[in-house]
Amino acid sequence: MSAIENPVVVSAREAAPPRPLWQVIVIRPETMTLVLLILALFGASLLSPYFLDFGYILRSFTLSAEFAMVALVLTMVIIAGEIDLSPAANMALSACLFAFAQQAGIPMPIAIGIGLVAGLVMGAINAIMVIRLQIPSIIVTIGTLTLYRGIAQVIAGDKSIRVPEWFIGVNNVLMAGIPVPVIIFLVMSIVLGLVLGTTIFGRQIYQIGTNEVAARHAGIRSQRIKMGLFLLMGLVSAAAGILTASRLGSVRYDLGLGGELQMVLMAMLGGTYIFGGRGTILGTFLAAWLLVIVSTGMTVANVLPAVQLVVLGVLLVVSIIATNAIYSRTQR
């Protein structure tokens, strides 16, 4: 029997029927994050009525806003098929350099510039090792994570470096009732979300992460784009480090220690696919709020920091399993 006589069978064999629209919209990792966020908010409000106060949540968010900003860029890096574990160490080193410079009498704007340039250089080192020299980003950034924090330790020693009184407390400055770090995070989410979701550049990031060889054959300058992402990562980490310095009022080498877990966790909880090519800024945005509510809720409920560490570790593993399951069921 030829194919012309029985076209229905052939087409059925070639393509699966399209999934109904509601499935495409509902069965997504971001939906999972949103549901969890609402559940967490509900649970937390049972725990303490403070959680119904929006200002309280905003103030709690300032504690993680720096990590959340970096997590947004990390999401793009992971979508492009790479990973960066060094941003928390980058934050520490650029904050140390910044604090050291302004303590040495360098005017504040130049000191901030030094911190940002340092972050950019650290991003460039990662980029050169990963892209020019083709060494896997996982192991490179484990190395630079140790190196950057080690250099921070050499610079700061065991002491803490103070920053001037007027520079402290950017987290207490309100604009339209919202703390400044949260505003920065919101603006970054919108800008990066638009870039990733609506521009050609953003689509190219997805293509690189899905199949880099194919992307290069399609004329996408994958190396240049990934280079740019690593540089952006360095710059944003440095800015986050300086913001943290302002929030804490002093800089120690262990600033943001262990932050890589929280950043990766935000990206993973938001449904970013660990093997690249899938994920959204919206997911990471929701996950950041989810994480803040969970950790603040645990602190309010007097959960020991150690137990919180366990919860974060378990959440990380569970969230990748769930994300993988959703993607393998629906988006093949």
């Binding site: 150690a306 137990v307 570790g313």
Partner: peptide, 19 residues
């Protein structure tokens, strides 16, 4: 799952259990 992410999670998990 990629080992790097799993063990990053269990790194913190086991440390927390130690406490």
């Amino acid at each position: 799952l990629p080992a790097i992410i799993v063990t990053l999670g269990t790194l913190n998990l086991y440390r927390g259990l130690t406490y």
